[in-house]
Amino acid sequence: MDAVVAFLISIPISPLLSLLFEGIDRKLHARMQKRIGPPVLQPFYDLIKLLGKERIIPATASTRIFEIMPMVSTASSLLGASILLSNILSNSNIVGDLILIIYLLAMSSIALIVGGSASGNPYSAIGFSRKISMMIAYEIPMLIAVISMAFGPSPSLAVSSIIEFQVSRGLPLVASRLSMALAAAAFLLCIPAAASVVPFDIPEAKTEIIYGFLIEYGGPYLALAKVSKSVLNFTLTLLASAIFLYIPSLLGEAALLNLGLSLFLCLIVSLLIMFITITVPRTVLARLKVGQALKFYWVLPLTLSFSSIILSAVNL
């Protein structure tokens, strides 16, 4: 498939897929709690309902920033998702590499908290400061885990070339080297915090600070914020499945010829990753405090990602 066509197709597909993923996540979460749970399409219904509601801007907010930031956030996470998806779909790199995707995702989180804290609510101010501390905690190990790929077996940071490398080896990247397994572990450990789910949903903690920076958003703004968050979660899981666990590579060269099948397998794997890194932690764990989360991230994932860099430098 032509790269430009793939990119254009990915833009509408990625929010649809991510909302579907969110629906599945909510259903699984409910079933693990012995509940019936919402229908799988509930996120779509929520979205439609929210889009039809009136726009409320708090009197204390600085209006411009409050209004624009959800759009910026959604745009950047959508762009990240589309770049990734088009890379998998067309197997050619058009606009950006891994670093761009990671930064677009970070950008999306930051835009949301900036917009939220522009509302003037003290709870969103607390949410802002908490999110910043959390980003310091998880962004570093995550970035290092991704960068270690540049030292690794395929010295490239473009998703398409990493996929090509995996296909040429006939093995997913985790299985090819110890350093990559460690990097994958670090990356997976960072997903719950980046997706901000329990135990790391500290910035929005509903029983403590009532969704923090999202507190004043409602109606279409909240709809955008929700889309942005669910696209972010989807991109993270898809990224993990594409660069570390590209299961279609087991098919050999056929994976590159039959890209539709590869994408499907990739999505299945990312669904599994979502179950393990998002659904299960938020079901079986309690929320941590900022200090405890910071300690966790700077002990385990940071060590993992650093050792991954060191190991890949010595070609392990």
């Binding site: 693990m32 709690q33 012995k34 509940r35 329990v198 135990p199 949903d201 903690a205 029983t207 938020r282 079901t283 079986v284 764990l285 309690a286 929320r287």
Partner: peptide
């Protein structure tokens, strides 16, 4: 403490 499952 954010432990919804135990709550349920």
């Amino acid at each position: 403490v954010g432990f919804d499952t135990l709550f349920m």
